[in-house]
Write a protein that binds this DNA or RNA. Sequence first.
RNA 1: GUGAGCGUAGCUCAAUCGGCAGAGCACUGGACUGUGGCUCCAGUGGUUGAGGGUUCGAUCCCCUUCGCUCACCCCA
Length: 427
Amino acid sequence: MEAKGIKGFKDILPDDIKKWHFLEETAKEVFENAGYSEIRVPIMEFTEIFSRSIGEDTDIVEKEMYTFQDKSGRSITLRPEGTASIVRAYIEHGLHADPQPTRLYYLGPMFRYERPQAGRYRQFYQIGVEALGIDEPLLDAEVIMMLWHLFERLKLNYLELQLNSLGCKNCRPLYIKTLRNYLTDKLPLLCPDCKKRYEVNPLRVLDCKREQCINAVANVPGIFDSLCPSCKKHFDEVKGYLRELSIPFVVNQKIVRGLDYYTKTTFEVISEKLGAQNAVAAGGRYDGLVKDLGGPPTPGIGFAIGVERTISLFKNTPPEQKPLIFLASLGNSGQAFSMKLARQMRDAGIKVELGYGDSLKSQMRKADKSGTGYVLIIGDEEIKKGSAILRNMRTKSQENIPFGSVFETVTKRLRPEAQPEGLSDNI
RNA sequence: GUGAGCGUAGCUCAAUCGGCAGAGCACUGGACUGUGGCUCCAGUGGUUGAGGGUUCGAUCCCCUUCGCUCACCCCA
């Protein structure tokens, strides 16, 4: 047998994990400071949860879901996105009875059966936010502000916020009708895919990258002319708040989103530093979704951040936070003593690494690579003398420390080292 | 699902016209009996992705297959 993982499923090795922690911890702090609480939901749901919310005719539901039958014969699906599960939990546990909005965030793996490429995996991670129960444009702006604030905290530059409105249950069908009428003449000009989209979801034609289709829709009527007065007002107010907040955005009428549940405000944050898959975060309002999944009519808005894509923009690795003491020991009694000492120091919250290797030389080499500032050397000789050697790895100076005061001295020495370097700008 | 490019040591890559599979990094040890980085020396590490064909001889040419990567599609 060959040790080989599944296509599109990646290991995250220790060298990379600091970046993950940095993103996760920063996001957690930003969201919790805004009143959001973490929610953890299962990574599988009954298939209907996804097919009903995302939409039967979407690519995700049609061809990208990991779906199987469990032993009872029920159809189960590995979640391709987070919102549906969160909304299901919101309904199932009656969270609408809490003061609204209900503010939730989540993080974890999503699964889509697609051909992997740069920035696209079959198991990928999202950090997402949902705010349910309020339909005011102020909330749209706050959610977008929070997302933008997070990227600022991560020191990511070269990002662009794109904004659109897809209208509501009332005005979107009108626009689709207008669009389809317009496209009827152009039908022969469209690519085969778009001919299909014309039938199923004409909005997606706007999204097509083929030159023939871009030309065909060059003078297409925009959706803003079809928005009903309340959707138009909503969108104008969201834009107004964002200007007030000095959050730069561009309106892009072509962001359409591949999930059917979106209404009104949709947005996307893209980076020119990524490859073809350039969205690092995306989201929007979904005012009909709670009702569609069997709950009370409830508006909602949220976004999801692509973790791998965001991390790939990090230029430098966040520095190690915690100083370390390295114990190099020789001989049976030295090793036993070191082990006991390690236990005590760890119990007091100090990070302690034990050296392994026959010679002191090899342990010193490992100590050097561990990045420690100090090494405590304890061999059989030191046991006899009743004192340990504390070596400062930077200055190379050494001092003898009687066993009785080892703990105290190490604690003192480690403290001034506890100054992490500042994080410089990412890309 | 479609297309293109690439598979040689743990990693990054060489190998002339088809002629003994190599280097750097990393790892381990030594120079320095119990003291790291720098330097020097040595060692470990290979079914050249797999299978078949052509050939006296294949990492190299041909076929098949698997894998990886990028792009289309779609999306975070």
